[in-house]
Simulated assay, not measured.
Amino acid sequence: MTTRQDDPGPVALVTGAAGGIGGAVVRELVARGARVVAADAGRTAGRELAGSFAVDVQDAAGVEAMVGEIEERIGPVGILVNVAGVLRAGPLLTMAEDDWAAMLGVNVTGVLTVSRAVARRMVGRGSGSIVTVASNAGSVPRVGLGGYAASKAASVMLTKCLGLELAGHGIRCNVVSPGSTDTSMLRSLWPDADGERATLRGAPEHYRVGIPLQKIARPEDVAAAVAFLASDAAGHITMHDLCVDGGASLGA
């Protein structure tokens, strides 16, 4: 995004704003001059925020009320970043129904619910940018992450299809797919202190390559990619999936 000194900056709504990547996206957009509204299951604090909401992204009525209040009190939402997500690891054959439902609910239905509430208003203005944070697991099969991978693959295609439907209204919809990123979600998958080294070198027994760049991504690395796709610098980019994984998916 670009702002003049006398321009208050676009209103940007970020879901999952209390998490590692979500928090980094908030900071990056604020630094670039946006008026950022943070949404999460629990209210997010921060003096730099234009607003903060506690909301379940699956709750259509709650989301609609939130977006309506943002537009009335702060301004029209020009940027939406869908970061809210949950991960439940485990084999598909034994995965609990509740875990499957939670991932589809937040990672897919949540993206649709928030995107629709915002996009319906963007259509009338003829502009807007939506970025969904997915995962490289959405394009590369992973042992023990089948439910998560399926939900992220669905969120990618949902966002691309939305981008196709909205392109004629001047609204761009893109995806950022991170790989292993230094967040509490990643660390929850590490069984011991050797987790980082194991992630870097890969796990041949699980058909998973390591990270060619030999480093774990920082949340800020992902946030920079999000901010680019949301900005005017990416004004002719839509329905794109930008992978930020240090080469872990080998360009797949």
Score class of each variant (00 low, 15 high):
residue 240 H to N: 14
residue 250 L to R: 15
residue 23 G to H: 02
residue 64 E to A: 15
residue 225 A to L: 11
residue 188 S to E: 08
residue 60 A to C: 04
residue 176 V to L: 06
residue 216 I to P: 06
residue 15 T to I: 02
residue 198 A to Y: 03
residue 148 Y to F: 14
residue 72 E to I: 01
residue 37 V to N: 07
residue 24 A to H: 10
residue 76 P to I: 02
residue 30 V to H: 12
residue 28 E to W: 02
residue 137 A to E: 07
residue 174 N to K: 13
residue 13 L to E: 04
residue 247 G to C: 12
residue 122 M to W: 11
residue 16 G to I: 00
residue 26 V to N: 03
residue 159 T to I: 05
residue 23 G to N: 01
residue 15 T to P: 10
residue 40 D to V: 01
residue 3 T to L: 08
residue 238 T to H: 11
residue 54 A to N: 10
residue 138 G to A: 09
residue 212 P to Q: 05
residue 90 G to I: 06
residue 31 A to S: 13
residue 8 P to M: 04
residue 135 S to F: 09
residue 249 S to E: 07
residue 168 G to P: 08
residue 76 P to S: 09
residue 139 S to F: 01
residue 1 M to D: 12
residue 145 L to G: 13
residue 20 G to M: 02
residue 183 T to Y: 02
residue 152 K to E: 10
residue 93 L to V: 14
residue 84 A to L: 09
residue 225 A to C: 12
residue 82 N to I: 10
residue 159 T to C: 10
residue 170 G to N: 03
residue 4 R to Q: 14
residue 108 V to L: 15
residue 12 A to W: 06
residue 99 D to F: 05
residue 193 A to C: 03
residue 26 V to H: 00
residue 96 A to K: 15
residue 20 G to E: 03
residue 8 P to H: 05
residue 150 A to Q: 04
residue 215 K to C: 04
residue 186 L to C: 07
residue 174 N to Y: 05
residue 128 G to C: 03
residue 173 C to T: 13
residue 49 L to P: 12
residue 53 F to L: 07
residue 53 F to P: 02
residue 198 A to H: 08
residue 120 R to T: 12
residue 83 V to I: 12
residue 62 G to K: 04
residue 28 E to I: 00
residue 230 A to E: 04
residue 11 V to H: 03
residue 74 I to M: 00
residue 204 P to F: 11
residue 190 W to Y: 11
residue 239 M to Q: 15
residue 39 A to S: 14
residue 48 E to L: 06
residue 199 T to H: 02
residue 37 V to R: 10
residue 11 V to M: 02
residue 101 A to E: 13
residue 249 S to V: 14
residue 54 A to G: 07
residue 86 V to C: 08
residue 107 N to T: 05
residue 10 P to C: 04
residue 58 Q to W: 02
residue 82 N to H: 13
residue 239 M to V: 15
residue 208 R to Y: 01
residue 237 I to A: 14
residue 172 R to A: 07
residue 251 G to E: 13
residue 37 V to P: 05
residue 167 A to N: 09
residue 164 L to F: 09
residue 157 M to G: 00
residue 110 G to Y: 08
residue 112 L to K: 09
residue 213 L to W: 06
residue 128 G to A: 09
residue 236 H to Y: 14
residue 126 G to W: 02
residue 69 E to C: 01
residue 121 R to I: 08
residue 222 V to I: 15
residue 122 M to K: 10
residue 166 L to W: 11
residue 97 E to I: 01
residue 234 A to W: 05
residue 113 T to R: 11
residue 138 G to D: 04
residue 161 C to I: 12
residue 32 R to A: 11
residue 65 A to G: 09
residue 186 L to P: 01
residue 174 N to Q: 07
residue 14 V to I: 14
residue 95 M to T: 12
residue 18 A to P: 00
residue 235 G to E: 15
residue 184 S to L: 09
residue 243 C to Y: 11
residue 80 L to K: 03
residue 107 N to F: 10
residue 67 V to I: 13
residue 171 I to S: 08
residue 90 G to S: 10
residue 78 G to D: 10
residue 219 P to N: 04
